[in-house]
Structure formats: structure tokens, C-alpha cells
């Protein structure tokens, strides 16, 4: 866990929704990026590299692709997205690893 947190002073946010992250529930604010929600929750390891070493957020501008995850909205198909470019909304599932092959 990191000491990351949401800034509360002077900030009004919409009511939280629940994000499903790797099968667990995570409260997040609609509109903030999935990456921001993950960072704010203290999550640091976003993926493993080819040696199994931890990797985390790096650029937060869509350039480095380190935060690429699988995202599913409702019953739609899983899609590959950069987490820094996906706004949190209700009914969103996120996987940091590949979904089971169907």
C-alpha cells in the first residue's frame, strides 16, 4: 500500500460507485479514470513483467501503456484499454490479467 489518497479539501465528488477489480469490490468516483481509482486505493502493482516483477503506473497520459488492463462494461465483451483513459462508471469490471479464454 502507498500513502496515496484522494484530496478532500475543496473538492466535491459525485457519489461513489463500485468497481469490480480482479473480482474484488473497489469504491470509486464516477468520472475519475480507472487508473486514478487504483492509485487512490493504494494499489501499486498493476501488472507483472515477463520476469514476474511488479510494474505500476508510469505516465498517466496514455503514452507508456503500462496501465493497459482488460475492461468490461456490463455484459459487453472484455476490451484492452489504457486504464488512465477509462472513466469509472457503474457496472464496470477491470482485470489486470487476461480474462479466461472463452
Amino acid at each position: 500500500m502507498s500513502g496515496a489518497r484522494r484530496i478532500e479539501e475543496g473538492v466535491r465528488r459525485p457519489d461513489r460507485v463500485t468497481l469490480r477489480l480482479d473480482g474484488a469490490d473497489l469504491a470509486a468516483c464516477p468520472g475519475e479514470s480507472v487508473l486514478a481509482a487504483l492509485v487512490a486505493s493504494g494499489a501499486r502493482r498493476l501488472r507483472d513483467d515477463r520476469e514476474g516483477t511488479a510494474r505500476g503506473a508510469f505516465c498517466n497520459m496514455g503514452t507508456c501503456s503500462e496501465c493497459t488492463v482488460w475492461v468490461r462494461k456490463g455484459a459487453a465483451a472484455w476490451v484492452r484499454r489504457r486504464a488512465c483513459l477509462v472513466p469509472v462508471e457503474a457496472d464496470l469490471c477491470v482485470l489486470t490479467h487476461a480474462p479466461e479464454a472463452t
Partner: peptide
């Protein structure tokens, strides 16, 4: 490549947009 090492822009944009401090 350790999680927690990031670009200055990452920290700044986390502060500016979602109002998130990425670390203690």
C-alpha cells in the same frame, strides 16, 4: 521500473484532474 517511480507529469495530472495524491 518499480511501481511508484513515475513521471512528473503523472503526478501532476493525478493532482489536477481526479484530485488524487499518488503517494504519502
Amino acid at each position: 521500473t518499480l511501481p511508484g517511480v513515475m513521471s512528473a507529469g503523472a503526478v501532476q495530472t493525478l493532482l489536477k484532474s481526479p484530485q488524487v495524491l499518488p503517494g504519502g
